[in-house]
Design a protein around this nucleic acid. Structure first.
Lengths: 242, 242
DNA sequence: CCCGCTCTATTTGTCCAACAATTTAGAGGC
DNA sequence: GCCTCTAAATTGTTGGACAAATAGAGCGGG
Protein backbone atom coordinates (compact mmCIF):
# COMPACT_ATOMS: atom_id res chain seq x y z
CA UNK A 1 0.00 0.00 0.00
CA UNK A 2 1.07 3.54 -0.57
CA UNK A 3 0.71 5.67 2.53
CA UNK A 4 3.36 8.14 1.60
CA UNK A 5 1.42 11.38 1.60
CA UNK A 6 -1.59 10.51 3.64
CA UNK A 7 -0.34 11.69 6.97
CA UNK A 8 1.39 14.87 5.95
CA UNK A 9 0.51 16.73 2.80
CA UNK A 10 3.78 18.69 2.95
CA UNK A 11 5.79 15.52 2.96
CA UNK A 12 7.82 15.12 -0.19
CA UNK A 13 7.17 12.03 -2.23
CA UNK A 14 9.27 9.15 -1.10
CA UNK A 15 12.18 8.47 -3.35
CA UNK A 16 13.12 5.01 -4.50
CA UNK A 17 15.98 5.08 -2.02
CA UNK A 18 13.57 5.69 0.86
CA UNK A 19 11.47 2.83 -0.41
CA UNK A 20 14.46 0.54 -0.46
CA UNK A 21 15.34 1.56 3.09
CA UNK A 22 11.80 0.69 4.16
CA UNK A 23 12.00 -2.65 2.37
CA UNK A 24 15.32 -3.40 4.01
CA UNK A 25 13.82 -2.66 7.40
CA UNK A 26 10.92 -4.91 6.56
CA UNK A 27 13.28 -7.62 5.44
CA UNK A 28 15.20 -7.40 8.70
CA UNK A 29 11.97 -7.63 10.65
CA UNK A 30 10.51 -10.49 8.65
CA UNK A 31 13.57 -12.64 8.81
CA UNK A 32 14.06 -11.80 12.45
CA UNK A 33 17.62 -10.73 11.77
CA UNK A 34 19.54 -9.41 14.72
CA UNK A 35 22.97 -8.21 15.68
CA UNK A 36 25.64 -10.30 14.01
CA UNK A 37 23.48 -11.53 11.14
CA UNK A 38 24.32 -10.87 7.51
CA UNK A 39 22.21 -8.98 5.02
CA UNK A 40 21.95 -10.22 1.44
CA UNK A 41 24.54 -8.96 -1.02
CA UNK A 42 23.97 -5.77 -2.95
CA UNK A 43 23.22 -7.76 -6.09
CA UNK A 44 20.59 -9.83 -4.33
CA UNK A 45 19.01 -6.72 -2.85
CA UNK A 46 18.91 -5.14 -6.32
CA UNK A 47 17.05 -8.14 -7.67
CA UNK A 48 14.77 -8.43 -4.65
CA UNK A 49 13.75 -4.77 -4.72
CA UNK A 50 14.04 -4.13 -8.45
CA UNK A 51 16.37 -1.21 -7.92
CA UNK A 52 19.75 -0.36 -9.34
CA UNK A 53 22.90 -0.96 -7.39
CA UNK A 54 23.58 2.72 -6.82
CA UNK A 55 20.14 3.13 -5.30
CA UNK A 56 20.65 0.15 -3.03
CA UNK A 57 24.02 1.56 -2.06
CA UNK A 58 22.54 4.92 -1.11
CA UNK A 59 19.98 3.11 1.00
CA UNK A 60 22.75 1.11 2.62
CA UNK A 61 24.59 4.36 3.37
CA UNK A 62 21.57 5.51 5.35
CA UNK A 63 21.50 2.33 7.40
CA UNK A 64 25.22 2.71 7.93
CA UNK A 65 24.81 6.31 9.02
CA UNK A 66 22.18 5.13 11.49
CA UNK A 67 24.69 2.71 12.94
CA UNK A 68 22.49 -0.26 12.13
CA UNK A 69 24.78 -2.06 9.72
CA UNK A 70 28.50 -2.37 9.22
CA UNK A 71 29.77 -3.04 5.72
CA UNK A 72 33.04 -4.70 4.84
CA UNK A 73 34.35 -5.43 1.40
CA UNK A 74 33.78 -8.96 0.26
CA UNK A 75 32.12 -9.81 3.56
CA UNK A 76 29.00 -7.73 3.03
CA UNK A 77 26.65 -5.97 5.41
CA UNK A 78 26.40 -7.16 9.00
CA UNK A 79 23.76 -5.96 11.42
CA UNK A 80 25.25 -4.08 14.35
CA UNK A 81 23.95 -1.68 16.95
CA UNK A 82 26.10 1.41 16.94
CA UNK A 83 23.15 3.74 17.04
CA UNK A 84 24.34 5.41 20.19
CA UNK A 85 27.68 6.27 18.62
CA UNK A 86 25.98 7.41 15.44
CA UNK A 87 23.56 9.58 17.36
CA UNK A 88 26.45 11.18 19.17
CA UNK A 89 28.40 11.51 15.95
CA UNK A 90 25.57 13.46 14.42
CA UNK A 91 25.57 15.89 17.32
CA UNK A 92 29.28 16.48 16.93
CA UNK A 93 28.61 18.57 13.85
CA UNK A 94 28.33 22.11 15.10
CA UNK A 95 31.15 22.03 17.56
CA UNK A 96 32.79 25.15 16.23
CA UNK A 97 31.65 27.71 18.71
CA UNK A 98 31.74 26.37 22.20
CA UNK A 99 30.32 28.60 24.84
CA UNK A 100 31.81 29.03 28.25
CA UNK A 101 28.83 27.23 29.72
CA UNK A 102 29.47 24.23 27.53
CA UNK A 103 33.04 24.07 28.76
CA UNK A 104 31.87 24.21 32.32
CA UNK A 105 29.14 21.65 31.69
CA UNK A 106 31.47 19.21 30.06
CA UNK A 107 33.98 19.60 32.86
CA UNK A 108 31.16 18.80 35.28
CA UNK A 109 30.23 15.81 33.20
CA UNK A 110 33.80 14.55 33.39
CA UNK A 111 33.79 14.93 37.15
CA UNK A 112 30.60 12.93 37.36
CA UNK A 113 31.92 10.20 35.08
CA UNK A 114 35.34 9.87 36.61
CA UNK A 115 34.93 10.91 40.22
CA UNK A 116 31.46 9.68 41.08
CA UNK A 117 31.82 6.35 39.35
CA UNK A 118 34.45 5.28 41.86
CA UNK A 119 32.51 2.24 43.09
CA UNK A 120 31.94 0.89 39.60
CA UNK A 121 35.57 1.41 38.69
CA UNK A 122 36.81 -0.34 41.81
CA UNK A 123 34.44 -3.20 41.08
CA UNK A 124 35.47 -3.72 37.49
CA UNK A 125 39.13 -2.83 37.27
CA UNK A 126 41.67 -5.58 36.67
CA UNK A 127 45.40 -5.93 36.96
CA UNK A 128 45.70 -5.62 33.20
CA UNK A 129 43.86 -2.31 33.32
CA UNK A 130 46.25 -0.97 35.93
CA UNK A 131 49.26 -2.07 33.93
CA UNK A 132 47.96 -0.31 30.84
CA UNK A 133 47.18 2.84 32.78
CA UNK A 134 50.72 2.98 34.13
CA UNK A 135 52.09 2.33 30.65
CA UNK A 136 50.05 5.16 29.15
CA UNK A 137 51.11 7.49 31.91
CA UNK A 138 54.75 6.58 31.36
CA UNK A 139 54.44 7.51 27.70
CA UNK A 140 52.91 10.80 28.75
CA UNK A 141 56.15 11.69 30.44
CA UNK A 142 58.20 11.00 27.34
CA UNK A 143 56.21 13.08 24.85
CA UNK A 144 57.84 16.07 23.29
CA UNK A 145 55.10 18.43 22.20
CA UNK A 146 52.01 19.61 23.99
CA UNK A 147 49.51 18.24 21.47
CA UNK A 148 50.82 14.70 21.81
CA UNK A 149 50.97 15.04 25.57
CA UNK A 150 47.35 16.21 25.65
CA UNK A 151 46.35 13.27 23.48
CA UNK A 152 48.14 10.95 25.86
CA UNK A 153 46.50 12.60 28.83
CA UNK A 154 43.11 12.15 27.21
CA UNK A 155 43.98 8.55 26.42
CA UNK A 156 44.68 7.96 30.10
CA UNK A 157 41.24 9.15 31.10
CA UNK A 158 39.60 7.27 28.24
CA UNK A 159 41.34 4.12 29.34
CA UNK A 160 40.00 4.65 32.82
CA UNK A 161 36.47 5.11 31.52
CA UNK A 162 36.88 1.99 29.45
CA UNK A 163 37.14 0.07 32.71
CA UNK A 164 33.41 0.56 33.11
CA UNK A 165 32.90 -1.65 30.01
CA UNK A 166 30.01 0.57 28.97
CA UNK A 167 29.95 1.53 25.31
CA UNK A 168 27.37 4.28 25.76
CA UNK A 169 29.48 6.05 28.33
CA UNK A 170 32.63 5.55 26.32
CA UNK A 171 30.95 7.01 23.25
CA UNK A 172 29.82 10.05 25.17
CA UNK A 173 33.32 10.54 26.50
CA UNK A 174 34.72 10.26 22.99
CA UNK A 175 32.24 12.84 21.79
CA UNK A 176 33.55 15.34 24.29
CA UNK A 177 37.13 14.75 23.19
CA UNK A 178 37.70 18.02 21.30
CA UNK A 179 36.51 20.06 24.24
CA UNK A 180 38.39 17.99 26.78
CA UNK A 181 41.59 18.31 24.76
CA UNK A 182 41.16 22.05 24.83
CA UNK A 183 40.69 21.99 28.57
CA UNK A 184 43.70 19.75 29.02
CA UNK A 185 46.02 21.88 26.94
CA UNK A 186 44.97 25.14 28.49
CA UNK A 187 47.67 26.81 30.50
CA UNK A 188 50.02 23.84 30.36
CA UNK A 189 53.58 23.48 29.16
CA UNK A 190 55.52 20.35 28.38
CA UNK A 191 57.07 20.63 31.81
CA UNK A 192 53.63 20.58 33.42
CA UNK A 193 52.82 17.27 31.77
CA UNK A 194 56.19 15.79 32.69
CA UNK A 195 55.83 16.64 36.33
CA UNK A 196 52.47 17.57 37.77
CA UNK A 197 50.14 15.73 35.41
CA UNK A 198 52.24 12.59 35.53
CA UNK A 199 52.33 12.52 39.32
CA UNK A 200 48.65 13.30 39.63
CA UNK A 201 47.87 10.34 37.40
CA UNK A 202 50.17 8.11 39.41
CA UNK A 203 48.45 9.18 42.60
CA UNK A 204 45.10 8.26 41.07
CA UNK A 205 46.39 4.83 40.10
CA UNK A 206 47.86 4.29 43.55
CA UNK A 207 44.53 5.14 45.13
CA UNK A 208 42.84 2.58 42.87
CA UNK A 209 45.37 -0.09 43.74
CA UNK A 210 44.84 0.63 47.43
CA UNK A 211 41.09 0.58 46.84
CA UNK A 212 40.98 3.84 48.77
CA UNK A 213 37.72 5.46 47.76
CA UNK A 214 38.31 8.77 49.51
CA UNK A 215 41.84 9.13 48.17
CA UNK A 216 40.71 8.33 44.66
CA UNK A 217 37.96 10.89 44.66
CA UNK A 218 40.19 13.52 46.20
CA UNK A 219 43.05 12.91 43.80
CA UNK A 220 40.88 12.75 40.73
CA UNK A 221 38.82 15.79 41.64
CA UNK A 222 41.95 17.80 42.38
CA UNK A 223 43.49 16.67 39.13
CA UNK A 224 40.47 17.64 37.07
CA UNK A 225 40.07 20.97 38.79
CA UNK A 226 43.75 21.74 38.33
CA UNK A 227 43.27 21.48 34.60
CA UNK A 228 40.16 23.62 34.66
CA UNK A 229 41.47 26.29 37.00
CA UNK A 230 42.90 28.37 34.20
CA UNK A 231 39.54 28.67 32.56
CA UNK A 232 38.01 30.13 35.66
CA UNK A 233 40.69 32.78 35.79
CA UNK A 234 40.26 33.95 32.25
CA UNK A 235 37.38 36.24 31.42
CA UNK A 236 34.08 35.06 30.05
CA UNK A 237 35.01 36.01 26.50
CA UNK A 238 38.34 34.27 26.36
CA UNK A 239 36.87 30.97 25.32
CA UNK A 240 36.31 31.51 21.63
CA UNK A 241 39.13 33.76 20.48
CA UNK A 242 38.33 33.22 16.77
CA UNK B 1 29.27 -8.74 25.40
CA UNK B 2 29.47 -6.19 22.63
CA UNK B 3 33.11 -5.31 22.82
CA UNK B 4 33.76 -5.41 19.12
CA UNK B 5 34.54 -1.74 18.78
CA UNK B 6 35.52 -1.02 22.29
CA UNK B 7 39.11 -2.00 22.05
CA UNK B 8 39.57 -1.04 18.46
CA UNK B 9 37.26 1.76 17.47
CA UNK B 10 38.06 2.21 13.80
CA UNK B 11 40.90 0.43 12.21
CA UNK B 12 39.24 0.39 8.81
CA UNK B 13 40.68 2.78 6.27
CA UNK B 14 38.55 5.77 5.54
CA UNK B 15 36.73 5.48 2.27
CA UNK B 16 36.51 8.28 -0.27
CA UNK B 17 32.93 8.84 0.81
CA UNK B 18 34.02 9.40 4.40
CA UNK B 19 36.61 11.82 3.11
CA UNK B 20 34.03 13.76 1.16
CA UNK B 21 31.82 13.93 4.24
CA UNK B 22 34.73 15.36 6.20
CA UNK B 23 35.44 17.87 3.46
CA UNK B 24 31.81 18.91 3.35
CA UNK B 25 31.87 19.47 7.10
CA UNK B 26 35.03 21.50 6.72
CA UNK B 27 33.45 23.50 3.94
CA UNK B 28 30.42 24.25 6.09
CA UNK B 29 32.71 25.29 8.90
CA UNK B 30 35.01 27.45 6.78
CA UNK B 31 32.23 29.34 5.06
CA UNK B 32 30.37 29.69 8.31
CA UNK B 33 27.24 28.23 6.74
CA UNK B 34 24.25 27.84 8.99
CA UNK B 35 20.64 26.74 8.91
CA UNK B 36 18.96 27.99 5.77
CA UNK B 37 22.10 28.36 3.70
CA UNK B 38 22.67 26.46 0.49
CA UNK B 39 25.43 24.00 -0.27
CA UNK B 40 27.11 23.97 -3.69
CA UNK B 41 25.56 21.77 -6.35
CA UNK B 42 26.62 18.17 -6.73
CA UNK B 43 28.62 19.06 -9.83
CA UNK B 44 30.52 21.78 -8.01
CA UNK B 45 31.21 19.47 -5.09
CA UNK B 46 32.51 16.83 -7.50
CA UNK B 47 34.97 19.31 -8.97
CA UNK B 48 35.92 20.77 -5.61
CA UNK B 49 36.64 17.38 -4.05
CA UNK B 50 37.77 15.51 -7.14
CA UNK B 51 35.22 12.79 -6.58
CA UNK B 52 32.57 11.27 -8.78
CA UNK B 53 28.94 12.23 -8.51
CA UNK B 54 27.91 8.91 -6.98
CA UNK B 55 30.48 9.33 -4.26
CA UNK B 56 29.31 12.86 -3.52
CA UNK B 57 25.74 11.62 -3.47
CA UNK B 58 26.54 8.87 -0.98
CA UNK B 59 28.22 11.44 1.22
CA UNK B 60 25.17 13.68 0.89
CA UNK B 61 22.96 10.77 1.93
CA UNK B 62 24.92 10.53 5.16
CA UNK B 63 24.44 14.21 5.91
CA UNK B 64 20.77 13.77 5.07
CA UNK B 65 20.49 10.79 7.39
CA UNK B 66 22.07 12.88 10.12
CA UNK B 67 19.38 15.49 9.61
CA UNK B 68 21.94 18.14 8.73
CA UNK B 69 20.84 18.89 5.17
CA UNK B 70 17.62 18.73 3.21
CA UNK B 71 17.82 18.12 -0.52
CA UNK B 72 15.23 19.11 -3.08
CA UNK B 73 15.39 18.52 -6.79
CA UNK B 74 16.64 21.45 -8.78
CA UNK B 75 16.90 23.54 -5.61
CA UNK B 76 19.85 21.70 -4.13
CA UNK B 77 20.97 21.01 -0.58
CA UNK B 78 19.93 23.32 2.22
CA UNK B 79 21.38 23.19 5.70
CA UNK B 80 18.80 22.30 8.33
CA UNK B 81 18.91 20.95 11.85
CA UNK B 82 16.68 17.95 12.15
CA UNK B 83 19.21 16.03 14.13
CA UNK B 84 16.88 15.43 17.04
CA UNK B 85 14.20 13.90 14.85
CA UNK B 86 16.83 11.92 12.99
CA UNK B 87 18.11 10.61 16.29
CA UNK B 88 14.59 9.59 17.28
CA UNK B 89 14.07 8.08 13.85
CA UNK B 90 17.14 5.95 14.17
CA UNK B 91 16.05 4.63 17.52
CA UNK B 92 12.61 3.86 16.16
CA UNK B 93 14.36 1.18 14.17
CA UNK B 94 12.59 -1.84 15.57
CA UNK B 95 13.20 -0.89 19.14
CA UNK B 96 12.51 -4.44 20.09
CA UNK B 97 15.73 -5.67 18.59
CA UNK B 98 17.98 -3.07 20.08
CA UNK B 99 20.81 -5.19 21.24
CA UNK B 100 20.83 -6.31 24.83
CA UNK B 101 24.19 -4.63 25.28
CA UNK B 102 22.81 -1.24 24.33
CA UNK B 103 19.98 -1.64 26.80
CA UNK B 104 22.33 -2.72 29.49
CA UNK B 105 24.81 0.05 28.73
CA UNK B 106 22.18 2.74 28.79
CA UNK B 107 20.72 1.37 31.98
CA UNK B 108 24.18 1.50 33.51
CA UNK B 109 24.58 5.05 32.31
CA UNK B 110 21.31 6.00 33.98
CA UNK B 111 22.46 4.47 37.23
CA UNK B 112 25.65 6.45 37.07
CA UNK B 113 23.85 9.68 36.28
CA UNK B 114 21.07 9.34 38.81
CA UNK B 115 22.52 7.24 41.58
CA UNK B 116 26.15 8.27 41.69
CA UNK B 117 25.46 11.96 41.32
CA UNK B 118 23.82 12.05 44.72
CA UNK B 119 26.20 14.64 46.18
CA UNK B 120 25.73 17.05 43.30
CA UNK B 121 21.98 16.66 43.43
CA UNK B 122 21.86 17.28 47.16
CA UNK B 123 24.05 20.33 46.69
CA UNK B 124 21.99 21.92 43.95
CA UNK B 125 18.40 20.96 44.60
CA UNK B 126 15.95 23.64 45.73
CA UNK B 127 12.50 23.68 47.28
CA UNK B 128 11.06 24.58 43.89
CA UNK B 129 12.66 21.49 42.36
CA UNK B 130 11.11 19.27 45.03
CA UNK B 131 7.70 20.81 44.52
CA UNK B 132 7.88 20.20 40.79
CA UNK B 133 9.04 16.63 41.27
CA UNK B 134 6.09 15.90 43.54
CA UNK B 135 3.75 17.54 41.06
CA UNK B 136 5.07 15.45 38.17
CA UNK B 137 4.80 12.31 40.24
CA UNK B 138 1.22 13.17 41.17
CA UNK B 139 0.33 13.44 37.50
CA UNK B 140 1.92 10.07 36.89
CA UNK B 141 -0.66 8.54 39.16
CA UNK B 142 -3.53 10.08 37.23
CA UNK B 143 -2.54 8.98 33.73
CA UNK B 144 -4.74 6.57 31.86
CA UNK B 145 -2.59 4.80 29.31
CA UNK B 146 0.84 3.26 29.57
CA UNK B 147 2.49 5.47 26.97
CA UNK B 148 1.56 8.65 28.79
CA UNK B 149 2.58 7.16 32.09
CA UNK B 150 5.96 6.21 30.69
CA UNK B 151 6.39 9.74 29.35
CA UNK B 152 5.56 11.08 32.76
CA UNK B 153 7.95 8.65 34.40
CA UNK B 154 10.69 9.77 32.05
CA UNK B 155 9.81 13.39 32.75
CA UNK B 156 10.32 12.75 36.45
CA UNK B 157 13.82 11.47 35.90
CA UNK B 158 14.61 14.23 33.42
CA UNK B 159 13.48 16.78 35.94
CA UNK B 160 15.78 15.25 38.49
CA UNK B 161 18.71 15.38 36.07
CA UNK B 162 17.85 18.99 35.35
CA UNK B 163 18.72 19.75 38.96
CA UNK B 164 22.37 19.32 38.02
CA UNK B 165 22.01 22.41 35.80
CA UNK B 166 24.24 20.80 33.24
CA UNK B 167 23.09 21.03 29.65
CA UNK B 168 25.57 18.47 28.36
CA UNK B 169 24.24 15.83 30.70
CA UNK B 170 20.65 16.80 30.02
CA UNK B 171 21.19 16.54 26.26
CA UNK B 172 22.71 13.11 26.55
CA UNK B 173 19.84 12.00 28.75
CA UNK B 174 17.37 13.33 26.19
CA UNK B 175 19.17 11.44 23.48
CA UNK B 176 18.63 8.18 25.28
CA UNK B 177 14.92 8.88 25.69
CA UNK B 178 13.58 6.35 23.19
CA UNK B 179 15.54 3.54 24.76
CA UNK B 180 14.73 4.62 28.30
CA UNK B 181 11.03 4.78 27.43
CA UNK B 182 11.25 1.23 26.21
CA UNK B 183 12.90 0.16 29.43
CA UNK B 184 10.31 1.99 31.48
CA UNK B 185 7.35 0.47 29.69
CA UNK B 186 8.68 -3.04 29.75
CA UNK B 187 6.62 -5.37 31.85
CA UNK B 188 4.52 -2.66 33.39
CA UNK B 189 0.79 -2.10 33.51
CA UNK B 190 -1.14 1.04 34.34
CA UNK B 191 -1.57 -0.35 37.81
CA UNK B 192 2.18 -0.67 38.24
CA UNK B 193 2.62 3.00 37.54
CA UNK B 194 -0.22 3.98 39.85
CA UNK B 195 1.19 2.05 42.77
CA UNK B 196 4.77 0.86 42.72
CA UNK B 197 6.37 3.46 40.47
CA UNK B 198 4.57 6.29 42.22
CA UNK B 199 5.65 5.16 45.66
CA UNK B 200 9.20 4.51 44.56
CA UNK B 201 9.42 8.04 43.25
CA UNK B 202 7.97 9.40 46.48
CA UNK B 203 10.54 7.47 48.47
CA UNK B 204 13.29 9.00 46.36
CA UNK B 205 11.96 12.48 46.95
CA UNK B 206 11.64 11.83 50.67
CA UNK B 207 15.25 10.71 50.80
CA UNK B 208 16.30 13.90 49.05
CA UNK B 209 14.31 16.05 51.47
CA UNK B 210 15.89 14.22 54.39
CA UNK B 211 19.30 14.61 52.73
CA UNK B 212 19.80 10.92 53.39
CA UNK B 213 22.51 9.87 50.98
CA UNK B 214 22.31 6.17 51.67
CA UNK B 215 18.53 6.08 51.47
CA UNK B 216 18.54 8.02 48.20
CA UNK B 217 21.02 5.71 46.53
CA UNK B 218 19.24 2.62 47.78
CA UNK B 219 15.82 3.82 46.68
CA UNK B 220 16.96 5.04 43.31
CA UNK B 221 18.99 1.97 42.54
CA UNK B 222 16.15 -0.31 43.54
CA UNK B 223 13.74 1.71 41.45
CA UNK B 224 15.93 1.59 38.35
CA UNK B 225 16.66 -2.08 38.72
CA UNK B 226 12.99 -2.85 39.18
CA UNK B 227 12.34 -1.43 35.74
CA UNK B 228 15.19 -3.35 34.22
CA UNK B 229 14.53 -6.66 35.95
CA UNK B 230 12.30 -7.97 33.16
CA UNK B 231 15.08 -7.64 30.63
CA UNK B 232 17.44 -9.68 32.70
CA UNK B 233 14.93 -12.47 33.05
CA UNK B 234 14.54 -13.07 29.35
CA UNK B 235 17.17 -15.24 27.78
CA UNK B 236 19.87 -14.00 25.48
CA UNK B 237 18.00 -15.28 22.47
CA UNK B 238 14.65 -13.82 23.36
CA UNK B 239 15.46 -10.55 21.66
CA UNK B 240 14.16 -11.47 18.25
CA UNK B 241 11.27 -13.90 18.59
CA UNK B 242 10.98 -16.90 16.25
C1' DC C 1 46.33 -34.54 9.81
C1' DC C 2 47.41 -29.90 10.06
C1' DC C 3 49.62 -25.62 8.77
C1' DG C 4 50.61 -22.18 5.55
C1' DC C 5 50.75 -20.47 0.91
C1' DT C 6 48.74 -19.03 -3.54
C1' DC C 7 45.18 -18.25 -6.51
C1' DT C 8 40.52 -17.38 -7.75
C1' DA C 9 35.91 -15.88 -7.45
C1' DT C 10 32.98 -12.95 -5.09
C1' DT C 11 31.73 -8.67 -3.05
C1' DT C 12 32.08 -3.96 -2.06
C1' DG C 13 34.21 0.78 -3.58
C1' DT C 14 34.53 4.16 -7.08
C1' DC C 15 33.90 6.14 -11.45
C1' DC C 16 31.56 7.29 -15.83
C1' DA C 17 27.76 8.27 -18.85
C1' DA C 18 23.07 8.57 -19.93
C1' DC C 19 18.34 9.58 -19.24
C1' DA C 20 14.12 10.76 -16.28
C1' DA C 21 11.80 13.85 -13.14
C1' DT C 22 11.33 18.15 -11.19
C1' DT C 23 11.48 22.96 -10.57
C1' DT C 24 13.40 27.43 -11.18
C1' DA C 25 14.14 31.24 -14.27
C1' DG C 26 13.29 33.60 -18.14
C1' DA C 27 11.13 34.48 -22.73
C1' DG C 28 7.16 35.76 -24.89
C1' DG C 29 2.37 37.01 -25.51
C1' DC C 30 -1.58 39.38 -23.64
C1' DG D 1 2.13 44.03 -15.09
C1' DC D 2 0.66 39.31 -15.29
C1' DC D 3 0.09 34.89 -17.07
C1' DT D 4 1.73 30.82 -19.68
C1' DC D 5 4.88 28.17 -21.57
C1' DT D 6 9.38 26.72 -22.73
C1' DA D 7 14.17 25.86 -21.74
C1' DA D 8 17.82 25.09 -18.69
C1' DA D 9 19.69 23.51 -14.54
C1' DT D 10 19.67 20.20 -10.84
C1' DT D 11 18.71 16.17 -8.47
C1' DG D 12 16.97 11.10 -9.00
C1' DT D 13 17.78 6.66 -11.05
C1' DT D 14 19.80 3.35 -13.99
C1' DG D 15 23.38 0.43 -16.16
C1' DG D 16 27.89 -0.78 -16.88
C1' DA D 17 32.83 -0.86 -16.09
C1' DC D 18 36.95 -1.44 -13.46
C1' DA D 19 39.64 -1.33 -8.93
C1' DA D 20 40.40 -3.11 -4.33
C1' DA D 21 39.91 -6.26 -0.84
C1' DT D 22 39.28 -10.76 0.97
C1' DA D 23 37.02 -15.26 2.17
C1' DG D 24 37.41 -19.63 0.55
C1' DA D 25 39.11 -23.33 -2.32
C1' DG D 26 42.95 -25.82 -3.67
C1' DC D 27 47.61 -27.26 -3.20
C1' DG D 28 52.03 -28.51 -1.20
C1' DG D 29 55.04 -29.43 2.67
C1' DG D 30 55.76 -30.74 7.29
Amino acid sequence: MNMQNLDDPDLEPRSVVDDVVAQMRALISERGLTVGDQLPTEKELCEAFGASRNTVREAMRILKAYGVVKVRQKVGATIVDNRMSSALEMFSFNVMDISRETFSDIQGFRCLLEVSSVEEIFDSITEADITELRSINAKLRGTEDIETAAEQDFLFHTRLIRVLRNKAILDVYGLMKPVILKIIQNGKTRRTFENETFHEHEAVIDAIVARDRIAYQYRMKTHLEAGYAHFKETGPFAVSPE
